[in-house]
Every structure is written in C-alpha cells, then in structure tokens.
Design a binder for these strands. Structure first.
Lengths: 198, 198
DNA sequence: GTCTATAGGTAGATAGAC
DNA sequence: GTCTATCTACCTATAGAC
C-alpha cells in the first residue's frame, strides 16, 4: 500500500465521519500514519483531497444504482433485485449515504451542478418508463412512477442516514441494527409489491 | 424583536444552512445585524448557541410526531393523518430534517445520548402496538410494525434530506419540488394502505 | 447592553533540509 | 519523497471603554 493510497484511505475515514468542515488535515495524516506535509505534496489542498474522496464515493453509488436501473428484468423482479443489491451496498458502506447527502446540502448549488456535469448522473429513467408501461397496460395499480422510485430509494437509504437517531432511541447496537436492515429487504419488497398490485 | 430573538433567528438560519462546523459566529452576527461580541454576551459560546438552536428544532419535530403517534384514531386514519401532518411540518421547515440528521451523525454517540436523556424521545410505540394488534386480529397483512413505521418516516423525510440531489438531477426549481411533495402525501398513503391490506 | 480591540489558539499551506 | 519548522490567516472568546 503506497503513500497515496494510505492518504486516500485515511481521508475516506475522516471525511465521512466528520464531514468536510470539521475534518482536520492533521487527523488525516495521523490516521494514515504519515506526515502532514505529504498531504499537500500529493493533493495540493484540503479541497482537492476532499473532491477525490467524494467523487469516488458518489461515483461508486451512482454506478451501482444505474446498473440495476438499466438491467433487463420484469418489473417485480427488478424491484426485488434493486432492493436486494442496493441494501447490500449500503450494508457494506453504511456511512456513505449520510456523507454524500450532508455534503451536497452544505456545499451549495454550484458544487452539485458541477458534479452533475462532469460525473455520470443517476439515471432512473429506464425503471420509471418500465413502471409507466405496466400502469398503461393495466398490469399494476396506477401510481406515479417517479414517486414510486423515490419511495424505494427512501425506504432503503433513510434508515442508514438516520442511524444514530434510531440506534439510540431503539437502544440497539451496530450488529443488531445491521440485522434489522438485512430483514428489512423482504419487508420493503413485500410492502411495495402488495402496494402496487391491482 | 429583541436582541436575543434576533440572534436565535439568525443562528437558526446559519446553523441549518452551514452546519455547526462550517458556521461562523461573525456570519450569525451579520445576519442578525448585531455586534459579534453580543453573541457571547447572550450565549457564552458557539456550542451553547448551537445547542439552543438544535434542541429547539429537534424538540419541535419530536413533539409534533409524538402528538400524532399518540392520537386515538383507527389505524388507517392515523396513517393518513400522520403523513398529512408530518409532510406539512416538513413543507414548512424543509431544511430541518437534514440539519438534525447531519449533526446527529457528526457529533457522535455522547451528544445523542445526552440529548435523548434530557429531551423527550420520539415515541412511536403507540402506533407500533396498534399495528401489531391489527396484525394479530387478522385485519391487515402480517407486517413487522417497526419496519412499517420506519418506512413511513423514510418516505416522508428522505425526499427533503436529499433535496439538492433530486432538484439538480430532475432539473426542477423549489416551487416545483414543493408541489411534488404536496402530491406525494396521497401517493405514500395509497402505497402503504394497499401494501398492508389483506 | 452594546461596541472596539485584541488575546490566544489552531488550521491550512509552504519553505527548505535531507 | 519525506520530514521539520514556520508563515499567514482566521476563528472563538474575552477585556474593557462607553
């Protein structure tokens, strides 16, 4: 593991935990077990180091989600597959959604616009159109496809974003929380499938 | 409007927009149109000023949610009432959920624990038990009540937390976004009611 | 209560030896 | 490439005049 990778690894940890504003270059250097000066040697500034970390995290999630959206399955199986795989991604990186959403909220319009231009966007259109076709064909209850996709994303991602809140009010530890998220997959799929069928 | 109220009003704006770490006492003073020294005269420190703002926001949301949870309505009406009123609260204060969740994520366990002790907790138990009774009585499909409540909260709150993301990728402005959230009420209720009926 | 001035500390960034 | 030392800027907080 070379120096640049050690820095990126440490920066991921610190930035996702503390957020950009509260993160300290010194702490990143400590976690990486390297000298603070090296951070600037490799990445010039805190801002650039942050962007490297953020775009990596954002890109990974978007790529994963798009892959599922664009797959070629029947609607019900696609929904099932989406929930299964998206929840697995979140279980592997439980702190990423909060990180991404926090920074997007705080960095302002300009930052988001720029990100959307140079990076691949999330593209739920294939799924949205597929839902609309099923509605038109009378196969499922008439729902607003955009809202349905938003609901799917919400039910998967929100519990991870609000994890500290739920953890402390429901008095459960991390392992228990992860188990709840595991069993949540089926719960979400059942609710949605039953919710849209005629 | 006296000085203390002006400060609190300004602090609300700045803290919710920037978050604790990125907020500057100077900016709060500027927004309040008062001298920076007065901030310390009234609230001693940035931390104390922040706590005043945060606990106010948190308490308001919790109080509102608890009130609905504890109401004495039949299940389906309670769900409908919850979505309606909770979404109205969020439409009035669209930036609050992201603020609360961000800070809870970053301030760490100790902060959350302390908050939960001295403040009233969110208490969804009445609703959870009501759902369990309907399941036991064979009135609705067997669902995990905790997961169902979590899904309701998710579908309402997540779109507000992820607002900048959706706004810029769906290319819509604030007014349009609020309209989507308004029509979302019915969409959520329909999905859930259909999703749990036998 | 309100202001100005400033102390005291810390963060990001750079210079320069090795 | 890696380290130490330091510069410069900024931020919170306080002291003290009015």
């Amino acid at each position: 593991m070379n120096t640049e990778e050690k820095i990126l690894e440490a920066a991921r940890t610190v930035f996702t935990q503390k957020g950009y504003a509260a993160a300290r270059m010194q702490e990143i250097a400590d976690v990486a077990e390297i000298n603070k000066g090296l951070l600037h040697y490799y990445f010039r500034s805190k801002e650039r180091l942050f962007q490297a970390v953020f775009e990596e995290a954002f890109g990974r999630v978007v790529k994963h989600v798009n892959h599922i959206f664009e797959s070629n399955l029947p609607l019900l199986e696609k929904i099932e597959g989406f929930v299964e795989k998206y929840m697995d991604t979140l279980l592997e990186h439980p702190e990423v959604p909060a990180f991404v959403v926090n920074e997007l909220n705080q960095k302002g319009e300009a930052f988001v616009k720029e990100l959307m231009q140079k990076r691949q966007k999330p593209n739920p259109m294939p799924l949205i159109m597929q839902i609309q076709m099923e509605v038109d064909a009378g196969k499922i209850r008439p729902v607003n496809p955009f809202q349905l996709v938003l609901s799917l994303l919400s039910m998967c991602a929100f519990p991870f974003i609000a994890r500290p809140l739920f953890k402390s009010f429901a008095q459960i530890d991390d392992r228990m929380y992860m188990q709840l998220m595991e069993s949540r997959k089926k719960e979400i799929v059942d609710l949605v499938i039953n919710g849209i069928k005629l």
